[in-house]
């Protein structure tokens, strides 16, 4: 739990971004310290997913204003792969399928690239196999997933577990989990949440981007933010999520206006 004393991992000021000329993010201020869990909630189309993609460096989005400093570095100056190597992680809402590429091969390349870059020894296929199997136990994943093509033919829940497995492998400083709860049944939700909780430490932080508060029963946030119209319009504690569930998003929009 945060006591507000962790070092600042992410500091976003006045971030504006657009896609194909259409402004989506209209001035976001957002600060995350080590050890914290934040939840960003909001109605569909409010800009939640865009915010995580912009921070991860998706090429379709153009940053039109503001700053984002990640662990002391100007995040917006880095390419997407440099952001990942420096410890920023995005768990995708819809992970893409990559037919023909074995999951084990993909995971190992990601691990060797990201952690090799931080001075960790690169693992050969046999060493990696032992290593990844341990991590898979945490998420109750069948080792058969290693031989299947990346995300190909995976169910929604399997894809999400595969995302959290990547989080476990890459040991990010800051993980944005975009709608990780969507498509999960209640058992899968519990397992994924346990996995995320297990990975939390005083040195890292997690941002949950979610539409529903159900995930927050399992991963308890320190702060809940509401996004609407490309801005964070309200911030509160855990209780804000419960209020949102009871009252919906409409009253916030009215309040903010």
């Amino acid at each position: 739990m945060s006591n507000g004393a962790g070092k600042i991992l992410l500091d976003v000021r006045g971030l504006c971004a657009s896609v194909a000329g259409v402004p989506i993010l209209k001035g976001i201020d957002f600060t995350v310290r080590a050890g914290e869990v934040h939840a960003i909630m909001g109605p569909n189309g409010s800009g939640k997913s865009t915010f995580s993609k912009v921070l991860a460096g998706h090429p379709s989005y153009e940053v039109t204003g503001g700053t984002a400093v990640f662990d002391g570095v100007d995040l917006l100056e880095l390419s997407a792969e440099e952001r990942a190597r420096s410890g920023f992680f995005l768990s995708f809402q819809y992970p893409v399928e990559v037919p023909g590429v074995a999951n084990a091969q993909f995971l190992r390349l990601a691990y060797n690239t990201v952690l090799g870059g931080r001075g960790r020894d690169e693992l050969d296929p046999l060493e990696f196999d032992d290593f990844v199997r341990e991590k898979m136990k945490l998420l109750e994943m069948d080792p058969a997933f290693l031989d299947r093509s990346v995300n190909t033919g995976f169910s929604g829940g399997e894809k999400k577990r595969n995302e959290i497995l990547q989080m476990a492998l890459l040991e990010p400083k800051l993980a944005f989990l975009d709608e990780t709860d969507s498509g999960l049944d209640i058992d899968a939700l519990r397992i994924v949440a346990q996995g995320v909780n297990h990975l939390r430490s005083a040195d890292n932080a997690v941002v949950l981007v979610t539409h529903y508060q159900r995930l927050l029963n399992y991963i308890v946030p320190d702060f809940v933010h509401v996004m609407d119209g490309g801005r964070l319009v309200k911030t509160g504690g855990r209780e804000l999520a419960l209020e949102l569930e009871a009252r919906g998003y409409d009253w916030i929009g009215k309040q903010a206006a």
């Binding site: 997407a80 792969e81 952001r83 992680f89 990559v98 023909g100 390349l109 890459l170």
Partner: peptide
């Protein structure tokens, strides 16, 4: 773009990503 972004978000650059995808194919 989406496949390449997925690889990039895991630290893997486009050239390695394409090579891996093509080799798999």
């Amino acid at each position: 773009e989406d496949q390449l972004f997925y690889f990039a978000s895991r630290g893997i650059d486009a050239e390695e990503a394409v090579s891996m995808i093509i080799n798999g194919f």
